[in-house]
Write a protein that binds this DNA or RNA. Structure first.
Length: 281
DNA sequence: ATACGCCCCTGGTGGC
DNA sequence: TGCCACCAGGGGCGTA
């Protein structure tokens, strides 16, 4: 379930194990994911030393000492599975890319739905990659303020739910954390985006930051040496207030029995929205 | 420009 | 035990 906090957690896990290591081998098990892999990807990464990692929106950047940057997206179902290379790997038909380091680590990029991607560009050109064109601010940056958000939303007649899902408004939120942030801020997902200003924007921005920070903390704290027992990076138990809780009592309304409505589900832009119609206006 | 629908792909779940 | 419809973290593209 990779939204910003999961991608951040995976990125930190990869950094903890791979930063500074030399790539002994990279194996592509198929010619593409969402898009074709660059034809020279294997040649450029084999033997390169991994110098560092970064995250932008839901993308992981892996830099090498050759001045290249791999741009990784996990899509809907992408995972990174870490193991020692001397153990026979568990066969997985959806393990599409394998990176092995000189010191004996093996990272598998597993993605059943294949909505993920792996590209390779010159690091100093990474900012020009189409994936990053037009992206909005990082929600955890200091520059993401209520004033900045309401300026980006001004005049927009689409719903605030759809606007927050739009990576050009703010980068890295997905379906889960948009639902959670709107709940925390007490804002209806149906509300016209352009009306989220003033006090509402002043509630929404801290709500977005808080829910993302809590999820990153939960991810980080659940990792032991950045790797879970099953070898997966960045997956952890979530404690969502509304997401996936249709029909349950609203955790924000005093109770029992709480509000009459409880948590409802509706569809916006083809995606499920979970919300409390009593608290969120 | 903006908004919306549809598509990419596989797997899990629940109803009949 | 099938079988089938529906749902799932994302994003890009085409059409009004």
């Amino acid at each position: 379930m990779p939204e910003l906090p999961e991608v951040e957690t995976v990125m930190r896990g990869l950094a903890g194990t791979l930063a500074g290591k030399r790539i002994a081998r990279i194996t592509l098990r198929r010619p593409d994911l969402r898009r074709a892999f660059p034809p020279d990807l294997v040649a450029r990464l084999t033997g390169a030393r991994i110098t560092g990692f970064a995250r932008r929106a839901k993308y992981i950047l892996m830099q090498t000492d050759r001045g290249d940057a791999a741009i990784i997206h996990l899509g809907m179902s992408g995972r990174m599975v870490l193991a020692r290379a001397n153990r026979p790997p568990e066969a997985n038909p959806h393990e599409h890319v394998v990176i092995e380091t000189e010191d004996g680590w093996r990272v598998g990029f597993v993605d059943p739905r294949r909505f993920g991607s792996l590209d390779l560009v010159r690091a100093d050109e990474a900012g020009n990659h189409p994936a990053f064109k037009g992206l909005g601010p990082e929600p955890l940056d200091a520059a993401f303020t209520p004033a900045a958000l309401s300026a980006a939303l001004a005049g927009r007649r689409t719903s605030i739910k759809a606007a927050l899902m739009d990576q050009r408004i703010v980068a890295g939120l997905g379906n889960i954390y948009v639902c959670e942030a709107l709940f925390r801020a007490g804002i209806s997902p149906r509300r016209a985006a352009g009306t989220v200003a003033g006090a509402r924007a002043a509630r929404l921005v801290p709500a977005i930051k808080a829910v993302l920070e809590a999820a990153i903390r939960a991810g980080g704290s659940s990792l032991r040496d950045h790797v879970q027992p099953n070898g997966e990076l960045g997956y952890f138990q979530h404690a969502w207030a509304v997401y996936g809780r249709e029909g349950e009592p609203c955790p924000g309304c005093p109770g029992p029995p709480g509000c009459k409505s409880g948590i409802r589900r509706m569809v916006q832009g083809g995606r499920s929205t979970f919300y409390c119609p009593t608290r969120q206006t």
